[in-house]
Amino acid sequence: MRRAELVTAVLLAAFSIYLMWKSTELKIGWVKHEGPGGGAWPFWLAGIMLICNVWTIVNWVRKATPQSRSQDQFMDAHAIRMFLLVGGSVVALAAMVHIIGVYGAVPIFMLFYLRILGRHGWVPTVSISVAAPVIIFFFFDVAMRIVLPKGYLEPLFYPLYDIFL
């Protein structure tokens, strides 16, 4: 556990530095008559993340937290199995987006995640699996005018575009 905390903090700190460097490709300061530049939010968010990771490393060195003193195993067999199941389902979600779009992939993912991994009942599982893509559609496509990938299901959305757009 102790080693895992340090490795994670160091990797996340390095990633924070990369994100800060990458965000400077856009303006991170104040743009006259526009407000903060496009890189301001990611730069400062990554900066805060870097501070948090440095603090975690300091606490690790001082052995100030239970995790920094722990000699326990980081992941047991059950944790590894769950990590692979969750990670595999997220990879499958990303792959399905290219084929059946966000609005087809999200309900399948939610059904699997809530019913199989979460062992929730059918009513909340189906309710959330149906509600999630509907809410996502109205938020992104209708309200924000950000078109998400629809894959082979795109022709099903033409009537909705006629109504809402």
Rank of each mutant, 00 (worst) to 15 (best):
residue 10 V to H: 07
residue 130 V to H: 07
residue 71 Q to K: 11
residue 124 P to R: 11
residue 52 C to W: 10
residue 116 I to F: 15
residue 79 A to D: 15
residue 135 I to F: 13
residue 56 T to M: 14
residue 131 A to H: 05
residue 125 T to R: 10
residue 12 L to T: 08
residue 136 I to S: 04
residue 22 K to Q: 14
residue 8 T to A: 14
residue 70 S to G: 05
residue 111 L to G: 10
residue 87 G to T: 07
residue 26 L to T: 03
residue 3 R to W: 10
residue 10 V to K: 08
residue 92 A to W: 04
residue 40 A to P: 02
residue 93 L to Q: 03
residue 151 G to Y: 06
residue 31 V to C: 06
residue 41 W to M: 14
residue 27 K to P: 03
residue 28 I to P: 02
residue 152 Y to C: 09
residue 66 P to M: 05
residue 88 G to F: 11
residue 105 A to R: 05
residue 135 I to Y: 01
residue 116 I to G: 00
residue 19 L to M: 14
residue 143 A to E: 04
residue 30 W to H: 12
residue 89 S to Y: 09
residue 7 V to S: 12
residue 2 R to I: 03
residue 54 V to P: 01
residue 124 P to F: 06
residue 90 V to T: 11
residue 56 T to S: 12
residue 42 P to Q: 08
residue 148 L to V: 05
residue 114 L to R: 10
residue 157 F to W: 14
residue 105 A to H: 07
residue 101 G to N: 07
residue 87 G to V: 08
residue 146 I to K: 10
residue 111 L to F: 13
residue 127 S to D: 00
residue 44 W to M: 09
residue 41 W to T: 12
residue 96 M to N: 04
residue 82 M to I: 14
residue 73 Q to Y: 02
residue 152 Y to A: 13
residue 161 Y to K: 10
residue 14 A to N: 00
residue 99 I to F: 12
residue 11 L to I: 12
residue 34 E to W: 00
residue 70 S to R: 02
residue 51 I to S: 10
residue 14 A to H: 05
residue 68 S to Y: 07
residue 23 S to R: 09
residue 28 I to V: 15
residue 137 F to R: 06
residue 21 W to V: 15
residue 75 M to P: 03
residue 98 H to S: 06
residue 114 L to F: 09
residue 113 Y to F: 15
residue 35 G to K: 08
residue 127 S to L: 15
residue 48 I to P: 01
residue 131 A to E: 06
residue 8 T to I: 13
residue 162 D to H: 12
residue 128 I to G: 01
residue 124 P to Q: 08
residue 101 G to M: 08
residue 156 L to A: 13
residue 99 I to V: 15
residue 152 Y to T: 13
residue 112 F to H: 03
residue 78 H to F: 11
residue 64 A to S: 13
residue 40 A to F: 15
residue 82 M to K: 12
residue 48 I to A: 15
residue 55 W to P: 00
residue 18 Y to F: 15
residue 132 A to N: 01
residue 90 V to R: 02
residue 70 S to W: 09
residue 98 H to N: 10
residue 83 F to Q: 06
residue 135 I to S: 10
residue 11 L to D: 01
residue 36 P to F: 14
residue 15 F to Q: 00
residue 120 H to A: 06
residue 146 I to S: 04
residue 40 A to E: 09
residue 140 F to A: 06
residue 96 M to L: 15
residue 64 A to H: 04
residue 39 G to T: 09
residue 9 A to P: 08
residue 157 F to P: 02
residue 38 G to Q: 08
residue 4 A to G: 12
residue 111 L to C: 08
residue 36 P to R: 02
residue 8 T to H: 00
residue 159 P to G: 06
residue 149 P to A: 10
residue 56 T to P: 00
